[in-house]
Design a protein around this nucleic acid. Structure first.
Length: 182
DNA sequence: CTCGGGATGCGT
DNA sequence: CGCATCCCGAGG
């Protein structure tokens, strides 16, 4: 397992999103190491992307998104679930990749289909917002698994974003049983 | 300060 | 389709 370097994240969010498929999310929580293979993601391109949180500008909530690449942007949604993003590109670009689904690998329950369930299964909470993903306790690693085929679709739940809602910025591994909405 | 709504998930 | 549950961000 090789931890992804800073350079991996310092690229276009779409490219990072596609390349994250098949990689392993590792969280060494208090009660043990949890690992899940990333099988579904969405790219959010920056302030010009009306579906992105950063399109509202730099706020207390989105400050991590405006920061340097390779950090976790974790936020609360609907008052009950967390969603985890990976910050991409240079500081100030405010682009990110939302992790939408993982396949259980180690110490993770089978209910991981969707960004909220993913965070619950991986024990990711608000304290991890802003966490450096090059750390030993929370990072993403490559174990050499190849992804055979990638499906591109419009992003989920962003109908308010006008023409941006139609962009094919959701990516998932074709045929994987852990996709949130095939 | 109020207030509307959300990158969700679950039950009906 | 309704609802849980609460922070965020806009507006007064």
């Amino acid at each position: 397992m090789r931890k992804l370097p800073r350079d991996f994240y310092d690229r276009d969010a779409g490219a990072v999103a596609r390349d994250l498929l098949g990689k392993c999310l590792v969280h060494r929580a208090a009660d043990g190491e949890r690992i899940g293979r990333i099988v579904e993601v969405e790219a959010y391109l920056g302030p010009h992307d009306r579906a992105a949180h950063s399109s509202r500008g730099l706020t207390q909530r989105t400050r991590i998104m405006f920061g340097p690449p390779g950090h976790a942007y974790v936020y609360l949604i609907y008052g009950m679930y967390r969603c985890m993003n990976v910050v991409t590109e240079a500081e100030g670009k405010a682009s990110a990749v939302l992790l939408r689904a993982i396949e259980p690998v180690r110490n993770v329950t089978a209910r991981t289909q969707g960004p909220g369930l993913l965070c619950r299964a991986m024990a990711i909470d608000g304290r991890l917002n802003g966490h450096d993903l090059l750390s030993p306790e929370f990072h993403i690693a490559d174990d050499g698994i190849r992804v055979p085929s990638i499906v591109k679709r419009p992003r989920i739940g962003v109908d308010y974003a006008g023409h941006w809602a139609k962009r094919l910025l959701r990516f998932y591994i074709r045929g994987n049983p852990y996709i949130s909405r095939p």
